[in-house]
């Protein structure tokens, strides 16, 4: 299986504090990889490095064998690295539909068009509606994003990410802060993405059952380092991982 994303000695320090230390991982194409680890282990920072929000102090990142370490976030998105944010990050005073349409438009490479034909505009909108339907948000399409509930904003966030149709998806705790009844729906959505088998997905999560069911591979970050990697079963039997989490019952089935 070929790898789509590789990091080489990826290190970042803030001041004197080492946040990530020499991370070497290789992500297989069309596989589902989860990243776990206690708070402050550097999971989101790792995502920020991959998507370009932060530049590493040391080390390199390869996407499809291309060195992307120095590329800006927008250039990486155009290459095919899409990401959702843990803190919802939408365009508050645009409508839900416009939010998604902006992503569709970015994906279609429509940039400096002032006199854009109405018919084609409609096509963009239809495409955006498809993604909204997938995220079960179509009934809110004319609502301003700022008036959505937290859970709905997360759904919008995911719809926007999907609309980018990138090869690699970075999902940063997609269910964080959602009400319990909303979680299964997002899970279903992620499961369906996985089932399509044409995307590489990286997921940061705390919910273990979710990780067990979805992941092909699990990476464990602990105190700035890559503690272990393997299939979910391997990880759960890993003693290092067990002891890293208090008492080990974190991973108990």
């Amino acid at each position: 299986m070929e790898s789509i994303l590789k990091t080489q000695n990826l290190t970042i320090t803030f001041g004197g504090h080492i946040v990530l230390k020499e991370i070497n991982v290789s992500i297989q194409r069309n596989r589902f990889t989860s990243i776990i680890g206690p708070n402050g282990a550097g999971k989101t920072t790792f995502f920020n490095l991959l998507s370009g929000q932060l530049k590493p102090t040391q080390g390199r990142i390869f996407f499809r064998d291309q060195d992307v370490t120095q590329l800006s976030p927008d250039a990486r998105t155009r290459l095919g690295i899409g990401r959702s944010f843990q803190i919802t990050d939408v365009f508050p005073h645009l409508t839900v539909l416009e939010n998604v349409r902006l992503a569709v438009q970015a994906r279609a490479g429509i940039h400096f068009h002032v006199f854009y034909p109405k018919q084609k505009m409609k096509e963009l909108e239809d495409k955006a509606m498809e993604w909204l339907k997938k995220a079960l948000l179509e009934h809110k399409k004319n609502e301003l994003a700022t008036y959505l509930t937290h859970g709905e904003k997360r759904k919008l966030e995911i719809a926007m990410l999907l609309a980018l149709e990138t090869e690699l998806l970075l999902l940063d705790e997609p269910t964080a802060g959602m009400s319990l009844e909303e979680v299964p729906m997002i899970l279903e959505l992620i499961q369906s993405l996985k089932d399509e088998q044409n995307r590489t997905i990286l997921l940061i999560e705390h919910k273990m059952d979710m990780i067990r069911n979805l992941s092909d591979q699990v990476l464990v970050l602990y105190q700035s380092e890559l503690l272990a990697q393997g299939t979910p079963e391997e990880i759960m039997q890993n003693e290092l991982v067990q002891s890293a989490y208090l008492g080990g019952d974190f991973l108990a089935p």
């Binding site: 998105t77 990401r83 990050d89 939408v90 365009f91 645009l94 970015a106 994906r107 940039h111 980018l164």
Partner: peptide
């Protein structure tokens, strides 16, 4: 629309590409 997106959230506009 992209201009308005920039006004609303520049970082996100960047991350959309």
């Amino acid at each position: 629309k992209v201009l308005q997106a920039i006004r609303e959230n520049e970082r996100r506009a960047l991350s959309l590409g």
